[in-house]
Design a protein around this nucleic acid. Structure first.
Lengths: 189, 189
DNA sequence: TCGAGACTAGACAGACCTGTTCACTCGGTC
DNA sequence: GACCGAGTGAACAGGTCTGTCTAGTCTCGA
């Protein structure tokens, strides 16, 4: 928690440092020592607060999911028609990536070397379930004949846009993702 | 090279062990010691043959690209119409994944914590350029109005199918990928 | 003023990792 | 039979990583 002087707590500084370093360089590439140095915090504070690096990674991923949800839901809520809401998801996704230098999906990267059942794997599954549920819900509202099938397809575009964003280091693929999503939606009505 | 007795060379055994361990557990998770133990080869042989772990990873990724190309091109060549050839790419992709337990795209996983410009990053770029070129070529032959745009969209589906295959540990998403690719192709004519 | 709790600096343990080196074996070839 | 190249086995160096521990500082409220 922040102190009354407005200075950030060790927890907050650790999370901010973890977010920046983990997202840009990867959760395995970045060691504890770099995180605490970047946060300006003692190593004991990290272990008192989070208990382990794994738990810090989990907290980082939770923050990332919240960030995606915030951006995506803002875009979806601002959109008018059900069709526009589906397409807005990709705008929200890209707006989120824009905040931290277009490194694509944090979960793809963290999960790449995760072991089945570990914290990272579980956090990734939770995140993917959220995305899938969102697309299914929007597909229902848009009147898709088979909302689950459309959601699977839109989720692929969503993942593919994340991959392309990382590979090309920019938002260039998003218009194509939106066009593709529109075509799939039209075909699914 | 294989000896005249039919026994595999140290190089071949190392590549086979690297392929199995790296693909299933990740290039960073798996250390040199496990690779040489699995290959039944002395550590000195690894360093005489490849020079570094990085170079072994590069050779592993090259083998992976060849494997994808073999499966995908076999499926494409077996398909009849230009439209069928586009869809066949996803069958080839899934057939390849089937060989090693559905862990999705080897390049996504290896590249997740790569640094820009290193061997893994370069190998990934090369692989992605190959996929993109293939889709562009097939899009031209299928008569797409904007082949580059269609190729970008198909590439997203291709990546998304790889992600889903890894997350769901199986080929369940491939029919949806093919349906989506068909719809995008129809919309692009 | 005092005590509690948050935080710090840094040494340290122990595991693990990549890469080197050296003396040696073995199978085939001239 | 001598030679040669490929491969072996094991010890070792040097580094990095996570996580622990200790002794001490700082801040704030009662």
């Amino acid at each position: 928690m922040a102190t009354t002087t407005g200075k950030l707590s060790a927890r907050e500084r650790l999370l901010a440092a973890a977010d920046e370093l983990f997202y840009n360089e990867g959760v395995r590439s970045v060691g504890i020592d770099r995180v605490i140095e970047h946060a300006g915090v003692a190593k004991a504070s990290l272990y008192n607060t989070f208990g382990s690096k794994d738990e810090l990674i989990r907290a980082y991923l939770k923050g990332r999911q919240d960030l995606v949800a915030r951006h995506v839901m803002a875009a979806v809520d601002a959109a008018g028609t059900p069709r526009e809401k589906v397409l807005a998801v990709f705008d929200g996704q890209t707006a989120m990536y824009a905040e931290a230098g277009y490194q694509g999906c944090a979960f793809h990267r963290a999960n790449a070397e995760a072991h089945p059942g570990d914290r990272i794997d579980l956090a990734t599954k939770e995140y993917r379930a959220w995305v899938r549920e969102l697309f299914t819900d929007l597909a229902v509202r848009a009147g898709a004949a088979d909302p689950a099938a459309l959601a699977t397809q839109l989720h692929m575009i969503f993942d593919g846009n994340g991959m392309a964003t990382r590979s090309d280091r920019g938002p260039g693929s998003t218009p194509f993702a939106k066009t593709a999503a529109g075509a799939l939606l039209d075909a699914a009505l």
